[in-house]
């Protein structure tokens, strides 16, 4: 049996809007095994993105612990957390979030700027990542010259390029039509199965969740498991 890659213990998260407190997550516990593909579902506003941000090290819990690969990331300073993200997590968002003036290859290269790699090596790795997502022939295209599905592939290539063990996907198919969405999900499945990436994906779409190994349902800040279909 594989080890737990992610251990979340008694996590609470409360946002502050002025004097108002918005409790989002309460005493949440979650274990995710290495190599898992987890789909996180639940109504809008239930705190899925909030949980994902905690796992990805974009935000810190109000209380409780987040341990990933043996590292208490809730205790890292901002700078060290940034460095941790660059080595361990790839992010895929609903709206792709590519830099519009850079070519696909340059977008994919961005995370490598934080490494000591030479320009030639960065280019080589970016092209490799683009070929994994089937877009090696679009390396010189800018985001505006790509379809939505292709943009999302570039975003996935960017998430992969520094070879992180964990992929965090927040509604990666939320903006795509059925067919394109399925292609993206198949790609994620390949990354999980053949490349050993642990994936945590938030989605609204039950069909999308079918591609995952597990589903969890988040409602009013607490988790309930669902038996895979």
């Amino acid at each position: 049996m594989a080890d737990n890659l992610i251990q979340i213990r008694d996590v609470c998260k409360t946002y502050h809007r002025g004097k108002m407190e918005i409790p989002v997550l309460q005493a949440l516990n979650l274990d995710i095994q290495e190599g898992d593909f987890l789909a996180l579902m639940g109504p809008s506003g239930s705190g899925k993105t909030t949980l994902l941000n905690l796992i990805g090290g974009l935000d810190k819990p109000t209380s409780g612990s987040v341990e990933i690969g043996g590292q208490r990331i809730d205790q890292l300073s901002e700078t060290r957390l940034a460095r941790w993200r660059s080595r361990n997590v790839g992010f895929v968002f609903q709206l792709y979030n590519l830099l519009p003036v850079l070519t696909a290859q340059r977008n994919v290269e961005l995370p490598l700027l934080l490494t000591g790699l030479s320009g030639a090596e960065r280019k080589k790795r970016a092209l490799t990542a683009l070929s994994v997502v089937g877009l090696e022939d679009r390396a010189t295209h800018k985001p505006a010259e790509l379809s939505g599905g292709q943009e999302q592939r570039v975003a996935i290539a960017r998430a992969l390029v520094s070879d992180p063990c964990l992929l965090i996907c927040d509604e990666p198919t939320g903006d795509l039509d059925r067919k394109t969405a399925d292609e993206i999900l198949d790609l994620l499945q390949v990354l999980n199965r053949d490349h050993g990436k642990t994936i945590v994906m938030v989605t609204h779409d039950p069909k999308a969740a079918d591609h995952a190994n597990h589903r969890l349902h988040l409602d009013k800040g607490s988790l309930t498991a669902e038996i895979p279909a």
């Binding site: 901002e78 700078t79 940034a82 460095r83 993200r85 660059s86 830099l99 995370p111 934080l114």
Partner: peptide
């Protein structure tokens, strides 16, 4: 600002 936020997500430090 949104683009800069992406850079930070990827792991660019504040500095």
């Amino acid at each position: 600002i949104p683009e800069l936020a992406i850079l930070k997500t990827i792991g660019f430090t504040n500095r």
